[in-house]
Design a protein around this nucleic acid. Sequence first.
DNA 1: GGCAGCATGTAACGTGTTACATGATTTC
DNA 2: GAAATCATGTAACACGTTACATGCTGCC
Lengths: 189, 189
Amino acid sequence: MQSQDVLLGLIKAHPGVSGYQLRRTIQRTTSFFFSISLSSIYPLLHTLAEAGLVTYEVEELVGKPDRKVYSITDSGRERLEEALREPPADTYSFVAFQDTLLRLGSMTDLGDEAIRTYLEQSLDIYRAHRRRVVDGVADASEDVTVSGPMRDRRLAMWAQMNKYLQDDLDLKIRWLEELMEGLDSDLDT
Amino acid sequence: MQSQDVLLGLIKAHPGVSGYQLRRTIQRTTSFFFSISLSSIYPLLHTLAEAGLVTYEVEELVGKPDRKVYSITDSGRERLEEALREPPADTYSFVAFQDTLLRLGSMTDLGDEAIRTYLEQSLDIYRAHRRRVVDGVADASEDVTVSGPMRDRRLAMWAQMNKYLQDDLDLKIRWLEELMEGLDSDLDT
DNA sequence: GGCAGCATGTAACGTGTTACATGATTTC
DNA sequence: GAAATCATGTAACACGTTACATGCTGCC
């Protein structure tokens, strides 16, 4: 999920939004895991407009500068849906989960089936990563060349980090499972 | 902690290492939260060498291409220590914790006092962020403009994300506290 | 008078990636 | 014979940032 697609999702959710307002919305809602500067937003909006994914109108305001208000086009909606239906990347990094959160934030009105598919694919990936961490892929013992007490301290630190990675993956897996259960219980009501 | 400093820390821990070997070490030990391509490593090594922070010798091997083996200089050690003593950044993002892990990985031989200081500063920051999350800074209700069942679903999703952010911060705080306790118990033995 | 907010944009720079170039040796 | 490993490096590109430029309104 590129920044472009994030903006596209926000414009879809907030028709008639300006670049300046987009930043405020991002700051208020996703500041903990996604941020972007105004200097990035404006060129991205131009690109989106040139590609025909959004349209804009110039609004003349009294007492305030003119502003361009953006709306998503049908072609933009298609493009966004395509992006949201892309399977999640298999690379594990803390950043990857930002992507998960961002996508889920835009996927709400795409339908339960799409969300469920995405959650399942993500769960597969995270469970596989967890197995790899438990199996000790990130094993530092070969790389700690020094000997003596320093060696023990280094190994202890790496063990602690490995523990964090496990707990982190457990948290993510549990969270994704809860979301899945939430979807299932919605079916009953 | 920039990539340069990460490499510097690794060269310090593994004197006589080559660029190619550095990548392998990074892949084996930190691949879950830090990665870098060879095309980035080589220019960085040149920069470090030009700045006098590392030195290298050309090793001629039979059956293998020549390689440059790097060692850290006194000036490099100073620079690394400076970087490690920098107070942690106050911005919360998933990426920020990568920095925490990377730094702790290089700090082992810097002494308990330095580590304790860093852990305390980090804990202060993460606890403050947790308070902000609990207070609902990332409140989406103003930004969810649609009404009806879609609105409820969006709000439910944001609530779920907020929960994740809390749990994530709880995990990080607990982990840092455990490290701190580990340091304290070392004093007894 | 100064600073914050609203509003848009360009220029310079930093930092990373993939693709390309080269070349030997070992393993399947 | 192809592919992987060892080993180094450059070129082109992607994507983001901060700094700079402009200008008006409202508040202290």
